[in-house]
């Protein structure tokens, strides 16, 4: 029987050591996942001007902890503005003029173990981004598509486009018309901001004025 035990041990060792490690076989950018969704009733060619919030909100475990505007956040805002401009949209720089589209960028960070549902993030959106910033005090937000089934570990980046051209004055709501969600290792690396934005845009060909 000893001989069988030795053989089984050798067999088990060989099996464990020969398994392909899928994570090790990914390069630094292949682990990142991009999710986009939009309001399919919206024709983006009807929108021209946009403005991006001047800082990025940091949400940690469901609480707004800061608004940041460092090299990473600046790089992200600049890359996103450039990408939209290349698609024919116009960056509205005059703060006195209300743009057609407002854009919020949010870093979602968690210290919790396991995975966190993106759905929870949308539930508290009003507390992270006061509609007052876009000139709509007392309004709420409305997301007409369901992206909330996605879960992430540790960190995610969310970019939301708000329809400021057609506010729901009856329901006091600002509709989101496009959302981009990025999660995976390296998404908060300053060197990756351009890649993140390019990937989101490449899978959103309808974002065109």
């Amino acid at each position: 029987m000893k001989r069988i035990h030795v053989i089984l041990l050798i067999f088990a060792t060989m099996a464990a050591s020969c398994r392909k490690d899928a994570i090790k076989n990914l390069d630094s950018k292949e682990g990142i996942v991009y999710v986009t969704d939009h309001d399919s009733s919206v024709n983006f060619s009807n929108y021209l001007s946009f403005r991006i919030a001047d800082s990025v909100s940091v949400i940690r475990d469901g609480q707004l902890v800061s608004r940041e505007n460092n090299s990473y956040e600046n790089g992200l805002i600049t890359s996103f503005a450039q990408a939209l401009t290349q698609r024919g949209f116009h960056l509205e720089t005059n703060p006195a003029v209300k743009p057609d589209i407002g854009i919020n960028i949010t870093k979602l960070v968690t210290n919790q173990t396991g995975v966190v549902s993106y759905y929870d993030y949308w539930g508290g959106y009003n507390s992270y981004w006061d509609p007052y910033y876009w000139g709509y005090s007392g309004y709420d937000y409305y997301f007409p598509y369901a992206i909330g089934t996605y879960t992430f570990q540790e960190a995610a980046l969310s970019i939301d486009m708000l329809d400021l051209k057609n506010p729901d004055t009856g329901g006091n709501k600002l509709h989101s018309i496009w959302t981009g969600l990025v999660y995976g290792s390296g998404i908060f690396n300053s060197n990756n901001t351009s890649d993140l934005v390019q990937n989101l845009f490449s899978q959103s060909p309808y974002l065109q004025h």
């Binding site: 067999f11 099996a15 020969c18 398994r19 392909k20 899928a22 076989n25 990914l26 292949e30 682990g31 996942v33 991009y34 999710v35 986009t36 969704d37 399919s40 598509y145 369901a146 992206i147 089934t149 990937n199 490449s202 899978q203 959103s204």
Partner: peptide
């Protein structure tokens, strides 16, 4: 018997059931 099967698919955009588009590298094992 024991077999470890694996294949990695380069980044592609997939249409999800909820209508969203998801871009990812898939590693099937």
């Amino acid at each position: 018997s024991w077999n470890d099967l694996y294949e990695k698919y380069g980044r592609q955009v997939y249409k999800n059931e909820d209508g969203s588009d998801i871009s990812a590298v898939l590693s099937n094992t």
